[in-house]
C-alpha cells in the first residue's frame, strides 16, 4: 500500500531522514514510534509529499507520488487522509463545513456533499454537532471532526501524526476505538505516529521504531486492544493504595 525506497530528507544541513526503506501492507495499522526529534513526523509527511524527499521514491496506492505532476499529486492526496495532534480545523467554519470542504475540493455535487458529510459525522458520533463551531467542542470532539474530514473522500490510507498526544486517557481510548473501526470496518490502512508506547501497543499490528532519522527495527506484534478505562473513584483509590504497598 505504501512503499518508501531509499527516501532521505535534509533540512539545510541536518539529515532528518537517512535513506529509509519501508513497506506498509494494505489493511495494517502501522505504528511509528521513537523519541522526540527521531523523524517520525517527517517520515509520515513524506508519505503524502507534504515534505519533498531529496532522494528516493514514495509509492502510495500503486502511484509513485514522486513522479506525479502537481495536479495529479493533488488528486492523489484526496485518497490519502491525514490527521494531526492539534486537529487543524478551520475555526471559522462549522463542523459541517469543515467536513464539506474536503468534498468540495474533490468536486462533489452539492446534494451528495450533504449526505456524505452527515454519514461521516455519524461514523464518528458527531451528527448532532453539525452546526457548532470548533471552539465549542472538546479536544476529542475536534479530533473526531478531523477524522470525519479525512474520511470524507473514502481514502485508502489514513496518516495520523500523534492524534492522541494532546488528549486525556479517556478521550484517547475513544479516538483509538474510532481509528480501529475505520481500519476494521472500512479497510483503511493506517499509519500511526506516536511517542507513547502503550498507545501504539493497543492498536498497531506492526511497529517501526525510529531513531535519529532511521528505522531501527520493525516489529510485528499482537495488538492488545482498547480496554475501557475505569473511572470509578474506588478504582483510583484501590490503585493508589496498591502502589503504596
Amino acid at each position: 500500500m505504501i512503499t518508501l525506497q531509499n527516501v532521505s530528507k535534509s533540512f539545510s544541513q541536518f539529515e532528518a531522514i537517512k535513506s529509509v526503506n519501508l513497506t506498509i501492507e494494505k489493511g495494517e495499522i502501522h505504528g511509528l514510534i521513537g523519541a522526540s526529534g527521531a523523524g517520525k513526523s517527517t517520515l509520515l509527511r513524506l508519505m503524502n509529499l507534504l515534505e519533498l524527499p531529496d532522494t528516493g521514491d514514495v509509492e502510495v496506492n500503486g502511484q509513485t507520488l514522486t513522479r506525479l505532476s502537481a495536479k495529479e499529486l493533488r488528486r492523489a492526496r484526496k485518497s490519502i487522509g491525514m490527521i494531526f495532534q492539534h486537529f487543524h480545523l478551520v475555526a471559522n467554519k462549522t463542523v459541517f463545513d469543515n467536513v464539506a470542504v474536503a468534498l468540495q475540493l474533490a468536486g462533489s455535487r452539492k446534494s451528495d456533499i450533504r449526505l456524505r458529510v452527515l454519514e461521516c459525522l455519524q461514523f464518528v458520533g458527531l451528527e448532532k454537532m453539525a452546526e457548532k463551531y470548533p471552539a465549542q467542542l472538546s479536544g476529542g470532539q475536534k479530533q473526531r471532526v478531523a477524522i470525519a474530514r479525512a474520511l470524507a473522500n473514502n481514502p485508502q490510507v489514513l496518516l495520523c501524526d500523534e492524534p492522541t498526544s494532546s488528549l486525556d486517557p479517556n478521550t484517547t481510548a475513544e479516538i483509538l476505538t474510532v481509528l480501529n473501526n475505520i481500519n476494521q470496518q472500512l479497510g483503511v490502512t493506517i499509519v500511526f505516529v506516536s511517542h507513547e508506547m502503550d498507545v501504539v501497543k493497543k492498536i498497531c499490528s506492526r511497529v517501526s521504531v525510529m531513531s535519529e532519522g532511521e528505522i531501527y527495527e520493525t516489529v510485528t506484534i499482537e495488538p492488545l486492544g482498547i480496554q475501557a478505562i475505569d473511572n470509578r473513584p474506588e478504582y483510583f483509590v484501590q490503585q493508589l493504595k496498591r502502589d503504596g504497598e
Binding site: 507534504l50 492526496r77 491525514m82 475540493l105 474530514r149
Partner: peptide, 10 residues
C-alpha cells in the same frame, strides 16, 4: 497547520 491540512486534502 490549517494551511497544511488544506494541502494534505489536495
Amino acid at each position: 497547520g490549517v494551511l497544511e491540512a488544506a494541502v494534505s486534502m489536495g
